[in-house]
Each structure stands twice: as C-alpha cells, then as structure tokens.
Computed example of a mutant assay.
Amino acid sequence: MDKYISDIFDEMRETQTRFIAEAAPVLIAISTEIAQCFINGGKLMIFGNGGSAADAQHIAAEFVNRFKMERPPLPAIAFTTDTSILTSIGNDYEFNDVFIKQVSALGNENDVVWGISTSGNSENVVRALREAARGDMKIVGFTGRDGGKMKGLCDLLFQSPSENTARIQEIHIAAAHIICQLVDEIMFGRFAG
C-alpha cells in the first residue's frame, strides 16, 4: 500500500508540474473576464455535476463571502444549491435541463457562465453553455482530457492536463483558488486601477 500511495503522489506531482507550465495565460484571461463582469454589474453563475457541483458551490462561496482579503461580497451563484429548482426541473422535464433553465431565467449579457465537467461532455452542462451563448454571456469552461463537447462552446477554456478524474478535480480547485485570488487582486489589490 505504501507504493500505491507513493504512485498516487507521483501522478499528482506530474499533473501539477504540467499545470504550472501551461496554465498562467488562461487563468489570467479568466480572472480578468470575471473581474470585468463584476465591475460591470454582472454576476457569475457556476455549475457542474458530482464533484464539479461541489466545486461550483465552493467557488461561489469564495466570491460571495471572501477568499483571502477583506472586500465587498461579489455576486456568484452555484446552480446546484436549490434542491426545489433541481428536483422540479428534473421531475417535470429532465435532468439535462436543470442548468439550461437557470441560465435562461437568471442570465444576462453582462454575466459570466462557468461550466465544470471533467469529461467536457456532461449534457446538462453543454446545454446550459449553448443557452449562455444565445444570450451573449461570456462562457468559461473547466474540463480535463481533450475538452469534449465544451471545447468548441467556451470563450475561455481551462483543461486540466490529465485523463484521471481525481487529478482533474484536484487541479480544478487549485485553478479556481488562483482565479479567486487574481480577481480580488484585480478589483481591490495590487492589480487594481
């Protein structure tokens, strides 16, 4: 078991090394887009399934509450938190509509929509991104592997450099934390003005 654990850490380090080498330009672009959205009075809407749903909620909390610095709350919504909306749409229509209906109801052209799918092929995420494009919203995607169907739908796409779902998710939350910190610095800190 010691070797098994050591191999997992080796894979994590290899993925992190690729992430560090490749990620800066897209993370800067995503952070700048989100900061501009907030400055322009827009909101951030985040969604995904399973672990990606948990990440969406985690990221929204970092913006609404605070990340590292004291600053005003920022408008971010995780579409996975309202069980009445999720279950009514899933029951009356289908689960693939749970995010598209929320984008349609709540999204405006000043907003940023952030879809998370490790495969890039989650149908409910893909449908919501297509709806966001029809509404002229900026689209951010977090995927892994080859980007899947999301690759052609996003204005800005971050692809975790792995095929392993666990490694993809670990990199996603690290990248999200970097984005949270950069947005804070762009709006209120060292990169403001």
Rank of each mutant, 00 (worst) to 15 (best):
D10P: 01
G147Q: 10
A174P: 00
A76D: 09
A192R: 13
V98L: 07
T165L: 12
R134N: 15
A29N: 05
K101Q: 15
K149T: 11
V140W: 08
S104P: 04
K138Y: 05
G141W: 09
I168Y: 10
I116P: 03
A175R: 04
Q181I: 00
G41E: 05
E62Y: 00
T118L: 00
W114N: 08
N96D: 14
R190S: 14
N121F: 03
D7P: 02
M137L: 10
F142S: 11
K151G: 06
P25R: 06
A21Y: 03
M187Y: 06
G148P: 05
K149H: 05
C154W: 12
N96S: 10
G42H: 05
I30V: 00
K149V: 00
I85K: 09
T15V: 15
G107V: 13
N65R: 10
N40C: 11
M12T: 09
S162H: 06
I39C: 00
I5L: 08
F142M: 13
D7R: 08
I28P: 01
Q57R: 01
A54R: 05
H177M: 04
A128R: 02
A29I: 01
D97L: 08
E185C: 08
A175F: 06
I171K: 01
M45P: 01
V26M: 07
I28Y: 07
D55H: 15
W114F: 15
F79R: 09
Q57Y: 02
I85T: 13
V112C: 08
F188Y: 15
H177Y: 07
L156E: 04
I173F: 02
R13K: 14
D111R: 09
F95G: 03
Q181G: 01
T17W: 06
I39D: 05
E14R: 11
D2C: 00
V98T: 02
G107C: 09
D10T: 14
F158H: 07
R127M: 11
A24Q: 03
Q169N: 14
E109I: 03
M187N: 03
N65A: 13
D184Q: 00
E109R: 09
A29E: 14
I39G: 00
V98Q: 03
E11V: 00
L157C: 08
A192K: 15
F63Y: 09
Q36T: 14
L153A: 06
A128C: 06
D92R: 12
I5S: 00
R66T: 09
G107F: 11
D82R: 13
F47M: 12
F19M: 08
G42E: 06
S117R: 07
D10N: 14
C37F: 01
R130A: 11
A53E: 03
S31D: 02
T118E: 01
L86T: 10
A56T: 05
S119N: 04
T87S: 13
